[in-house]
Design a binder for these strands. Structure first.
Lengths: 131, 131
DNA sequence: ATTATGTTATATTATGGGTATAACAAAGGA
DNA sequence: TCCTTTGTTATACCCATAATATAACATAAT
């Protein structure tokens, strides 16, 4: 029916859970502007079939994405990109993750400037066509 | 025998694995300069007892920390802080984690400047007494 | 000798991830 | 009206991992 914009690829050898891989690829897809606000994601059954995984695995990914404020689940349209702008909650999550991540870097003598450069480099990939 | 510098506290209600909690607290301890190069960590049995967990859980944490280049395991002295400076490997790990983390932030309209400020804030906590 | 260290082995329990069916209500299309 | 598709829920099963519980071993310090 509709052309699927997001190319989801699952690595079965990864130590990362499949439903987490789905989440991350969708989130990165939004950040890179491949998928936009209002766009519909493939249905749980369709994505499960094309990715070669179970329906419930997709459903779990979608449920968490809804919980985290990235999509809206509609019984008729399916999963639709709908971003809430709860920056405070997101910043708290980022702070916790960053605390460990930067501690590791700090132990290995990675400088503040190197981290800033890394942040800029990634941000440049995401902000294509925006602002 | 020796006063334990690191106060390890395990949250049994956390969704984070216990051995990961141990890793992170030790890494943050190194970054905050609470533990320094050459310092000895409590033995697997001692830390297991004081933290109220099993010996093998501590052993797993130590084994991974050794694998990641944070400590050295000596049959006589026990676990000793010994940092290898493999910045390249660490930067690769950071890049992967950052990619997802910044994508989330980017979706929620968190600006590049806000991330930089967050990085600086955390770095200031870690660099106390250094440089 | 005794103690304490890391290390290895085996076994058990509990939890979470993933799969396999199945069924339901709601909405849309033919 | 009938059929399809949507999310949603429930149940059951398998498997990998986390965590525990003992036990034993070689090595090194006291």
């Amino acid at each position: 029916m509709k052309s699927d914009k997001v190319l989801i690829e699952v690595d079965f050898n990864s130590d990362e859970a499949i439903y987490v891989q789905l989440q991350n690829q969708i989130i990165v897809g939004i950040a890179m502007d491949t998928i936009r606000e209002g766009d519909a994601l493939p249905s749980v059954r369709r994505l499960a079939e094309t990715a070669g995984i179970n329906m419930h695995t997709v459903n779990k990914a979608y449920t968490v994405l809804k919980q985290e404020g990235f999509i809206r689940l509609d019984k008729r349209k399916g999963a639709v990109i709908a971003l809430d702008m709860d920056k405070a909650r997101t910043l708290l999550q980022m702070r916790e993750q960053m605390r460990v991540l930067l501690a590791k870097g700090c132990c290995k003598n990675i400088s503040r400037e190197e981290v800033h450069a890394l942040v800029d480099e990634i941000f440049d990939e995401y902000r294509k066509g925006k602002v």
